[in-house]
């Protein structure tokens, strides 16, 4: 393990010998631990694997090697005495001048034909512009989908497994997540049906949207679109678990705390002859987070 060219340790220096012994012992021990870890890892894997044992033995195999190398370096390798000179990083003025001269010679050859230079530049620019267009294939034009959901007048509300929801299914203090019939995978149309234990204060023009005190709001937070899943029945508050926006269910889902700036859009609903809950149109506004031309 020691360099053959090195002279043997001076015998009278007992301390040095002891130190060398200790270093060699430590290094050998570390490498032995590493070998043990590697073999044990193989055995564990062979026997069907177990995540904790795999982690421990991998750690031993790698760690033993690492400790051994560092101890080796600390005991038996020279440290901290080498000196190297730094050199100037920037080029000298002469070098720069020489470069400039050569470059300008080439440049002069090019610029003699100014028409060619101009056309060449134009061709490269045109190619660049043409290459931007394929980006357009990445996604569709953001259209009406951002502002509307599949809800139309007469569409019935269903649960996430497609079961039609009757008005009676929602008990007082109850909450159900609903979707438009046939669109249970519409991410922008998830709806909260809530029947609070106190009367909803309808916004002007929305007096008939809450049959039997049943109210339907978009489930998507108007902040960044997390589902506002936490209904606190006793205080009639909806809380968004992502950023703690809080909405007052009795007061048109107005935000009363947190970073959301807009009320949750409300869905106009009615109960049909068979007792099913039916939408009377789309939400009162685009659902989910805001964007530049939301109001347009």
């Amino acid at each position: 393990m020691s360099d053959p060219t090195a002279p043997d340790p001076i015998p009278e220096d007992a301390a040095r010998t002891a130190l060398a012994k200790r270093g060699e012992r430590l290094t050998t021990l570390s490498f032995a631990v590493s070998i043990f870890g590697a073999l044990a890892l193989a055995v564990v894997y062979w026997r069907g694997g177990q995540p904790q044992l795999e982690g421990i033995f991998l750690c031993l195999a790698l760690g033993g090697l690492g400790v051994g190398m560092i101890v080796w370096a600390r005991y038996f390798m020279p440290h901290g005495t080498d000196v190297e000179a730094r050199h100037q990083i920037e080029s000298t003025e002469e070098e720069i001048d020489a470069f400039r001269e050569e470059f300008e010679r080439g440049e002069h050859i090019l610029t003699r034909r100014s028409l060619l230079v101009r056309m060449g530049t134009a061709a490269v620019a045109a190619l660049g512009v043409a290459l931007i267009f394929p980006i357009r294939s990445l996604g569709p034009r953001p259209g009406k989908g951002f502002k509307s959901t599949p809800y139309r007048k007469g569409i019935r509300l269903v649960t996430d497994d497609g079961t039609l929801i009757k008005a009676d299914d929602v008990s007082v203090d109850g909450v159900i997540t609903a979707f438009p019939e046939g669109h249970t995978d519409a991410a922008d149309a998830s709806t909260l049906l809530i029947r609070p234990n106190e009367p909803v204060q309808a916004r002007p023009g929305r007096e008939s949207w809450t049959p039997g005190n049943l109210v339907a709001y978009s489930k998507l937070c108007t902040h960044v679109g997390c589902p506002v899943g936490l209904y606190q029945a006793g205080v009639h508050l909806l809380l968004c678990p992502c950023h703690q926006s809080t909405f007052d269910v009795l007061d048109g889902a107005r935000p009363i705390f947190g970073p959301a700036a807009r009320s949750l859009p409300q869905l106009p609903i009615e109960v049909d002859g068979e007792g099913y809950i039916v939408a009377r149109g789309d939400f009162s506004g685009p659902t989910g987070p805001g964007f530049w031309d939301r109001d347009r």
């Binding site: 009757k166 299914d169 008990s171 109850g174 159900i176 809530i194 209904y231 606190q232 029945a233 006793g234």
Partner: peptide, 13 residues
């Protein structure tokens, strides 16, 4: 029963 702030999940839900 929805104790405290918990909503009620009736047998229809």
């Amino acid at each position: 029963t929805g104790p405290g702030q918990m909503p009620v999940f009736g047998p229809d839900t």
